[in-house]
Nucleic acid binder design. Structure first.
Length: 843
RNA sequence: GCCCCUGUGGCGGAAUGGUAGACGCGGCAGACUCAAAAUCUGUUGCCUUCACGGGCGUGCUGGUUCGAGUCCGGCCAGGGGCACCA
């Protein structure tokens, strides 16, 4: 009897799998394909528990599908561009490229220690010239297809990271990475025309059944479709003003018109009106951060201009510039109907504008119905609205929209909240945008033959600003069109561009084209994608959009890149705080009697709630410390046990110890099994052990199919218990049970499985062994246990032979002592017999 | 403010409308040991009873049903997303 030594066994199997190229996926195979992908990591330095959880889940699916006979693609790469490399360069004086590739080498080694079934021959990093030069080609393709454009716009400027950000990357008015309040700047930048696909991206969500409902809903809200009417006001200064509304039915309740401070007309007015200019400046000073919006009052400036009501030219509405009107949505101008919109009501009360209700709830008298502090937004009938009077809201919308369209005053339109994706970044460590600015020709794409536009390696980080722009020579080039002196675009692409098509590149990472269309046609869509829910909008929306572009360009054959998505929960741990509220690292404390103290002292430390492991909270456990002591199988088993995969899991020492003990227990089960018949011996009969074996096979298969890893784990414990308890089972049944057990743990604890398989006398590999099949006749039992209830309360249980007729079940149930006692001699009012399940006697 | 999700033992969590608490962690008792670790056996929702047994239990509250953790209505608590989007 020997302990199972994971440290000895694990590297051995890993080397053998690699040597036999077990996980190298051919691009042609008679088997059905299965593409399993986990969101690729940013090479920050070392892997963390979140990676371990993510990659363990993906690995289980990949190995399970492989055992089921699929040609499985399970690749790995590196999302390797990004700001941390530049920060390291600035803080430590290293080269971003060296820093990144060093990290990749470290993390690759750590991932290999986990024993992942990955096709390493397809590995790449997005900072490889070979990758980003292909991305530059794609950028030019998208440009040609009209999916990329340059425009001057109000953009989000992160003053700490010194770059602009996309809307999706501004969280609560702050930069997603730096946390600094973003500022607004007017800059010419590159955009991806994601809005061109707004309707498609929205519509497709309804059919993405293997995506979490939550993620689909978040994307739906982010895209934000609303139907309404766009129409034009004639202004007293003989200008025209377009507005958008979703409530055209309330037009006769209008009492003002409002422009965004950023509206072109506001800017025109500011030129001649000092007070208007001052008001606009004031709005801009307050800014658009969350805090500012929370507290900012509705403010307006009466321009003195008036707008003629579309259905009554004599009815003139005052035109204000108002701080709550956003330039980025609709037309940047609205009409205000205070009675039925809260913001309009707040504004009207402040500036003493009329509040005329035009929608009256059922049962209210239109003559007396009034709106107080709250706008009425519910259903009702129109009043005070001329030709709309008496109509319900939806009918009124249709009527007024129809009249406007017939008279050429307006059109029904659909507005989206989604904005185009700003992809320019004023940073160094990213994919250079392959564009040239020529004084005479304007913007000229770099011809594909001149790609790649390579990043220089001699850049300085000790001066603020864009390092590429500051480089002495890099940006100076000649115009590809006229040959005159010209400047390169010194911005790089948002790193989310890099991760928006890597899944397609994995299909053939050596391809001369960005995406090998044949390979992509074979592999895509990804059958199972796994990653954190924090990417619900950003990465997952961008990738869906880019894939639609790829499809349009003929690179891919599918609309949606990820057929199945699974969002796993985070890995959490208790937190500890000292007296000053500072975070205390796990290594600095020790626990005694449920309390925490500084190591070797009596100074108590406050135990805080469990939170996602993070550097800042100092509550992270380094995976390698667990792997070094217990082995990869233990940490993998922990990640799969107990907690459902979509929920946050709490890392505990006791739990890890328990997993390690189970590894040993499984090993002993095999090692101390005693004499077994030779491999291939068939078991027969229907012993308890055989039933337990086949029930486990059926249950674990079902659980893995549905990504219920925690339940699969529980089934495996149950089978292990059954084997341990089956002292007098036949040796053939024992062999069958042990072999099933080993194959079932194969995807989860692959190293232990191989070792145990060998110990059972097998000379093949578990990774080459088909998934076991459950014998249906053994899964079902030949007796049925009925729960016998009286008035819905359990009083007894009783076994009946399978298929016993209802009358017999009823008769014998009534005769049971506890039932008879409850009935107390009286006949039952009613007896319900559910075959195979339950008898309920109503007394 | 709007939208969504989640509430089950000491803990993580099981449970096609049909025996609530599978499985694991932890606890308790015992075996082995000079002792400890490891391992093994038993036990472990709460109340009541010497015992047999009985009662109560899935956030609260009402309903549907022979039967509700599960379905429906109304609350409460925690978490998440969006947020001046016209």
């Amino acid at each position: 009897m020997a302990r199972y030594d994971a440290r000895e066994a694990e590297p051995k199997w890993q080397a053998l799998w690699a040597e036999r190229q077990c996980f190298v996926a051919p691009n042609d195979s008679p088997k059905p394909k299965c593409y399993v992908l986990e969101m690729f990591p940013y090479p920050s330095g070392r892997i963390h528990m979140g990676h371990v959880r993510n990659y363990t889940m993906g690995d289980v699916i990949a190995r399970f599908r492989r055992a089921q006979g699929f040609n499985v693609l399970h690749p790995m790469g590196w999302d390797a561009f990004g700001l941390p490399a530049e920060n390291a360069a600035r803080d430590k004086g290293v080269n971003p490229r060296d820093w990144t590739y060093d990290n990749i080498a470290t993390m690759r080694g750590q991932l290999k220690q986990m024993g992942l079934a990955i096709d390493w021959s397809r590995e790449f990093a997005t900072c490889d010239v070979a990758y980003y030069s292909q991305q530059q080609k794609l950028f030019l393709d998208f440009y040609q297809a009209g999916l990329v454009y340059r425009a001057e716009a109000d953009v989000n400027w992160d003053p700490v990271d010194m770059t602009v950000l996309a809307n999706e990357q501004v969280i609560d008015g702050r930069g997603w990475r730096s946390g600094a309040p973003v500022e607004r700047k007017k800059l010419a930048q590159w955009f991806f025309r994601i809005t061109a696909y707004a309707d498609e991206l929205l519509e497709a969500l309804d059919h993405m059944e293997r995506w979490p409902e939550k993620v689909r809903l978040m994307q739906k809200n982010w895209i934000g479709r609303s139907e309404g009417l766009r129409f034009t006001f004639d202004l007293s200064n003989s200008e025209k003003l377009d507005v958008f509304t979703t409530r055209p039915d309330t037009l006769f309740g209008a009492s003002f018109v409002a422009l965004s401070p950023d509206h072109p007309l506001s800017e025109v007015l500011a030129k001649t009106d000092k007070r208007a200019a001052a008001f606009i400046a004031e709005c801009q000073r307050i800014g658009t951060t969350e805090a500012a919006i929370e507290t900012a009052e509705k403010m307006g400036f009466d321009t003195g201009i008036t707008a003629a009501h579309p259905f009554d030219p004599a009815w003139q509405l005052p035109v204000y510039i108002a701080n709550f009107v956003l330039m980025g949505y609709g037309t940047g101008a609205i009409f205000g109907c205070p009675a039925h919109d809260q913001r309009d009501l707040d504004f009207a009360r402040k500036y003493k504008l009329p509040v005329l209700p035009v929608v009256v709830p059922e049962g209210e008298d239109p003559k007396v119905f009034e709106v107080g502090a709250e706008a009425y937004t519910g259903p009702g009938r129109l009043a005070n609205s001329r030709f709309l009077d008496g109509l319900e809201v939806e009918a009124a919308k249709a009527e007024i929209a129809g009249r406007m369209e017939a008279q050429g005053k307006g059109t029904r339109t659909v507005q989206y909240r989604l904005r185009d994706w700003l992809v320019s970044r004023q940073r160094y460590w990213g994919c250079p945008i392959p564009m040239v600015h020529c004084p005479t020709c304007g913007i000229v794409p770099v011809p594909k033959g001149q790609l790649p536009v390579e990043l220089p390696s001699d850049v300085r980080f000790d001066v603020p600003g864009n390092p590429l722009d500051a480089h002495p020579t890099w940006k100076h080039t000649t115009c590809p069109k006229c040959g005159a002196k010209a400047l390169r675009d010194t911005d790089t692409l948002d790193t989310f561009v890099d991760s928006s098509w890597y899944f397609a590149r994995f299909c053939n990472p050596k391809s001369e084209a960005p995406v090998d269309a044949d390979a992509a046609k074979y592999w895509l869509p990804v059958d199972q994608y796994i990653g954190g829910v924090e990417h619900a909008i950003l990465h997952l929306l961008y990738a869906r959009f880019v894939n639609r572009g790829l499809h349009k360009l003929g690179y891919t054959a599918v609309d949606e890149p990820f057929a199945g998505l699974f969002t796993q929960g985070m890995v959490c741990h208790e937190t500890y705080k000292g007296h000053n509220g500072e975070w205390i690292a796990i290594e600095e404390i020790e626990k005694r009697n449920g309390k925490a103290y500084f190591k070797g002292s009596d100074t108590e430390v406050t135990i805080g709630r469990s939170e996602a492991m993070s550097k800042s909270k100092k509550n992270g456990i380094a995976p390698e410390t667990i792997i070094d002591v217990h082995g990869a199988d233990t940490i993998r088993w922990f990640m799969l046990s107990d907690t459902p995969p979509e929920r946050d899991i709490e890392w505990t020492n006791d739990g890890a110890e328990g997993c390690s003990r189970f590894v040993q227990r499984l090993w002993r089960l095999v090692d101390e099994a005693g004499e077994l018949p030779p491999p291939g011996t068939k078991a027969d009969g229907a012993s308890e052990l055989r039933r337990a074996t086949h029930r486990a096979i059926a249950a674990v298969t079902d659980d893995l199919e549905n990504l219920r890893f925690n339940r699969g784990v529980a089934q495996i414990y149950t089978l292990a218990n059954a084997i341990a308890d089956a002292k007098d089972a036949s040796v053939a049944a024992k062999r069958e049970a042990l072999e099933a057990l080993v194959l079932l743990i194969g995807p989860m604890m692959p190293h232990l499985a191989e070792t145990a398989w060998q110990a059972l006398g097998r000379d093949t590999l578990v990774v080459d062994t088909p998934w076991p099949k459950a014998d249906a006749s053994l899964v079902a039992s030949d007796t049925e246990t009925y729960a016998i209830q009286v008035n819905g309360k359990l009083r007894a249980t009783r076994q009946f032979a399978k298929g016993t007729d209802k009358a017999t079940v009823e008769k014998e149930s009534l005769a049971l002592e506890p039932v008879a006692r409850m009935l107390d001699g009286k006949p039952p009012k009613r007896v319900i017999v559910v075959p195979g399940r339950i008898v309920n006697i109503v007394a």
